[in-house]
Design a protein around this nucleic acid. Structure first.
Length: 258
DNA sequence: ATGACCTGTGTAACAGGA
């Protein structure tokens, strides 16, 4: 079973790339982030024509998450449970059970700056994600994929010294991600590839060849499924194409068992 | 020098991104 994740930075702009990528890589499940459109504007039809069911959770020009699956799409959860107030209404989380695995498509708040209120929102949001995963982690195995906007360790940033006092690298947000790992959600991309330069995002302003990137798109796989992961890849080729997203697609293969 | 870009929006400068 192949599970992919991609922050597309506008589905309206990127839909042709998504369709061609899906044809080439044939994911069973594709989690999308930053679709940046309302539910009514999401182009369901093109993915449905390829055999996918789609759930989109979007609230307008920012955020927006989706899951496309050709192996079933059940028990859909949009956002956190309970009352959604203020910024917590933003469309940053959608989950569904696909072929017996609960997939969470995650778009963690950016944080903006360490002294910005948005940074506190990011930390609380990550803690709420931990509660959400814990709540839904019954008998159904789980994978949380998406744009976590946190580089878990210095090796995940091209210049960690430069980023020491910025968002994406600060100790509190790294600890928030570590708290997810403590639940048994394993960072399988890093486990399988210890090399530096394993990035998933590159700033549009920096030439790609300089590889000034960060690894902020993660797949956190629970302890039942992690030993069954047979492949993890970042598709850097897609990032180098014409008019790309600033994030590369990532994908992993999981042996579904019997 | 992550500076130099991209996307969306009240189509003209701005938010916001990371």
């Amino acid at each position: 079973m192949r599970i992919a994740s991609w922050n597309v930075n506008s589905i309206r702009v990127r839909m042709p790339m998504v369709v061609s990528w899906v044809r080439r890589f044939a994911p069973d499940v594709l989690a999308l982030q930053e679709t940046r459109c309302a539910d009514a504007d999401f182009p369901h039809g093109e993915l449905e024509a390829l055999g996918y069911e789609v759930v989109h959770h979007g609230d307008g020009p920012r955020n927006g998450v989706a899951i496309a699956s050709r192996v079933g799409l059940e028990s859909i959860e949009k956002g956190f449970r309970g009352p959604q107030r203020g910024a917590y209404r933003e469309a940053r989380l959608v989950g569904a059970v696909c072929a017996g695995i609960r997939i969470h498509s995650v778009y963690v708040p950016n944080g903006r700056a360490l002294d910005d209120p948005h940074y506190l929102f990011k930390l609380v949001w990550l803690e709420r994600l931990r509660g959400h995963v814990q709540l839904l982690g019954g008998d159904t195995p789980q994978i949380a994929v998406g744009d976590f906007n946190v580089a878990p360790a210095d090796i995940d940033i091209y210049d960690p010294v430069r980023w020491r006092h910025r968002t994406h690298a600060s100790p509190p947000e790294r600890e928030a991600v570590a708290a997810l790992v403590d639940l048994g959600l394993r960072d399988v991309f890093r486990e399988r590839d210890p090399s530096p330069g394993l990035f998933t995002w590159w700033n549009y302003r920096s030439p790609l060849v300089e590889n000034r990137g960060m690894r902020i798109d993660l797949a956190l796989v629970d302890e039942v499924l992690a030993p069954r992961v047979t492949a993890t890849e970042v598709d850097r080729v897609e990032r180098a194409t014409e008019r790309p997203s600033d994030h590369a697609p990532i994908w992993l293969d999981v042996d579904p068992g019997r």
